[in-house]
Design a binder for these strands. Structure first.
Lengths: 167, 167
DNA sequence: CACCTCCGCTTGCAAGAGCTAGCACCCCGG
DNA sequence: CCGGGGTGCTAGCTCTTGCAAGCGGAGGTG
């Protein structure tokens, strides 16, 4: 069905649309239940949400992450708690940061607050001014998109196919 | 007056090229499905170094970390690879950040560039995980370009590699 | 209908994590 | 001399991880 390459392709398309301001409601709903308690053992749910959002099958992700599909299935349903390496592999396969997975697993402490991303980019000496501008513009577009997606998913949501309220 | 949007629009070509390169490397790494870092012995050495530096006995650290002393011994000598939880416990017992231990374990990637910016993007709750990944890739590519441009004598950013930038 | 492929899940098994108990060695105080 | 307590390491065990094989079901071809 969908190869990892196709997945990346999709992301690229998303970026292009974003940059061009086509604003075609790309809307990946990423449910990240911020201040919900009892997050600790919900890694499996989080993984499944991310995987569904990327529209990747269990077997695809398993192959991309280098784990067996039955095991990934069990991890997603919370029957197994994967080791650090496996967790990192899955994060890699999902193309999300390993930190966020670890935070979901309750292994790393959630970094608090909003260290101002904009300020960080602006004051970054390792970037040229042009690149700063591009990054900031892209960042703001993403933020808008994310906010829009969050609102859509809280509404009855005709377009969104991933339901976050399955807790 | 040039709005930021127009300015970015001018840079669209640049972004596209960059994204294409990033996508290529991402696809490579995903299709690769690498065997996730040969972990063990470095972490053990690192732990033992930290423990000796803190003048803490093996049993003491084991008690502080909530693991058995023989097991900690085996971990330090690389005979066992501890789970993420145990690793975090040990980090807590050593009073060092879990991230640094994880980086030593090769479980978390050390990113290039300004750690503040990276941390800001990663911990930004207004971004989806996938957008974080895209922004980080783009950011690192820019950093590499900038660095290459600074060093006019070296080769100009010929290859885009994903993470694992050797410091 | 049979036949194929992919989906996710269940089942048994090898390998390894992590524990308790016990080893040998060292330095002090009787 | 003999405890007693400190260091780290070894042996054996239990339980989990993670995999290969196989299950029934959904969807597409002929």
């Amino acid at each position: 069905m969908q190869t990892p390459g196709e997945f990346v392709r999709e992301q690229v398309t998303t970026v292009r649309e974003t940059v061009d301001r086509v604003a075609g409601s790309v809307a990946e709903s990423v449910a990240d239940a911020p201040s919900v308690a009892s997050v600790s053992s919900q890694v499996g749910d989080f993984i499944r949400e991310q995987r569904s959002a990327a529209r990747v099958s269990l077997r695809e992700l398993a192959r991309a992450a280098g784990v067996s599909n039955p095991y990934l299935s069990q991890v997603e349903r919370g029957l197994r708690k994967p080791s650090a390496e496996i967790l990192a592999s899955i994060a890699r396969g999902l193309k999300i940061s390993a930190e966020s997975l670890y935070e979901q697993a309750g292994i790393l402490d959630r970094r608090s607050g909003n260290p101002d991303t904009v300020a960080a980019i602006r004051s970054d000496e390792a970037l040229s001014e042009r690149h700063k501008a591009v990054l900031l513009e892209l960042y703001e577009t993403y933020v808008r998109e994310h906010r829009a997606a969050a609102q859509t998913s809280s509404q009855p949501a005709a377009e969104t196919r991933i339901s976050k309220e399955s807790a």
